[in-house]
Design a protein around this nucleic acid. Structure first.
Lengths: 240, 240
DNA sequence: CGATAGTTTGACACAGCTCAATAGGCGTGG
DNA sequence: CCACGCCTATTGAGCTGTGTCAAACTATCG
């Protein structure tokens, strides 16, 4: 199914791409990668840019190559909830159509590799491995969503904020290793985003940050640069 | 893929089964149904009975034929959150293994059609349509989970209870039809379950029920039998 | 340096929680 | 068929965590 030996055959673009190894494209062989690369294009989006409006979602699918994308839902009166975050090399855009509305917006600067809907669907027919991969990613997303439901429904504000920091640390700390208990990373979200993710207000989020800082669980520089000296101490506050 | 013409060929058990039409089994042809039926068995479970403990989840998969199953997650200190409800003809048991722990418990009397893990996985290899079907069910679940995240994170207690009643009405009112604005059903969950589903306490749930009753939005008989004279009036209170 | 957007802090209000008592439904056994 | 007991649901009173509103502070960028 994978064809790592013939690395020279795969498109140059894909050779160093993370999605090729850990993402959707890992299910494709060289020939399929070439076919897909023909109709794919890389592009960037700035913070706050909308990626998937109603219409566009149907048009194309993307791999997240870098940056963070937030998936949001909005009630009719404007209340908003972030229902998921996508990090590299996650897949973006749900296959087949889902009835309910969902927005995707760049939380940070983002780079994407996009292809038209049709290309993926055609490939799915001739390569069941791709659909299998998609199922796995969807199951992972479902699992994460359920985990977060517990956070939203049953945790206190303090636990929510700690859980959030752990999630980010796991997903974007470049120095992360299983044994390292320390973490450093730049927050990809504003306080407002964090509030929307946690079902809180920005003021409550801010107060919880202040408390974590006062207790030495985290240090923050320039509002965004976070240091966690001990992930296990942070985890102890996450209520899990 | 489906083979409705040769109805006489399919197993007697499956002939009248809802899962055969709207569930997972719709992806199978007569021969496959027969093969699967050989290793499947129907059984019942009483209210509160645990269906999927850690170990068992891996062992077998089931279709829900009647009744309601609740999927729960529990924090280390005992706080609980219901992360999903399964109604007939939903599928139960996640394919491949998911790392995180999830419990499935009968919320009402339940009847199931179960088969061993291996049977399904073998069939998935020879019948891509089955995996496709599974992907669709998973996408639907993901969508529902996200919808509920908004409810948990951003709605008031009153809106949560209204949303819950709408969800139940949609899924188990036998007399439901798109045009009918009235609904009648028996609540499949206790107040404690409802609280765990909504991220509230039983007292708050009870008070919201009382208010809905006082306002004529619902009528309740015997604590479980609910009448909703106007679903649209109920929906107006759901905050969506 | 000033403008702007984001963040922190404070004072206060209120939705929903806690604890406690009462009421209702339902099965069991006299 | 009633009486009892158990379990679930309701109601009440008071408390508290989080929201609201407003002001001060801080980064960032032209």
């Amino acid at each position: 199914m994978r064809n790592d030996i013939q690395t020279e055959d795969i498109p140059a673009l894909c050779a160093s791409c993370e999605a090729r190894h850990r993402g959707i494209c890992a299910a494709l062989d060289a020939a399929q990668l070439i076919a897909l690369a023909r109709s794919s294009h890389r592009h960037r989006a700035g913070e706050g840019e909308e990626l998937v409006g109603e219409e566009e979602s149907i048009e194309r699918y993307s791999n997240v190559l870098s940056g963070v994308v937030k998936l949001t839902k909005t009630l009719s009166d404007g209340r908003q909830q972030i229902v998921g975050l996508r990090f590299a090399p996650d897949f973006l855009g749900s296959p087949f159509k889902v009835e309910s509305k969902l927005n995707a917006e760049a939380a940070t600067k983002v780079s994407l590799c996009s292809f038209p809907r049709g290309a993926i669907e055609r490939m799915m027919k001739e390569q069941p491995g791709l659909e299998h991969r998609l199922l796995q990613q969807t199951l992972k997303e479902l699992d994460e969503a359920r985990e977060w439901m517990v956070t939203l429904g049953r945790k206190t504000a303090a636990e929510k904020v700690a859980s959030f920091l752990l999630l980010i640390a796991k997903n974007i700390d470049p120095s992360a290793r299983p044994d390292r208990d320390k973490a450093e990373f730049e927050l990809p979200l504003t306080r407002a985003d964090i509030a929307d993710f946690l079902g809180l207000t920005i003021e409550t989020v801010s107060r919880q940050f202040t408390r974590l800082r006062a207790d030495g669980i985290i240090a923050i520089e320039n509002n965004r640069q976070v240091t966690v000296p001990s992930l296990s101490r942070l985890e102890a506050r996450s209520g899990s």
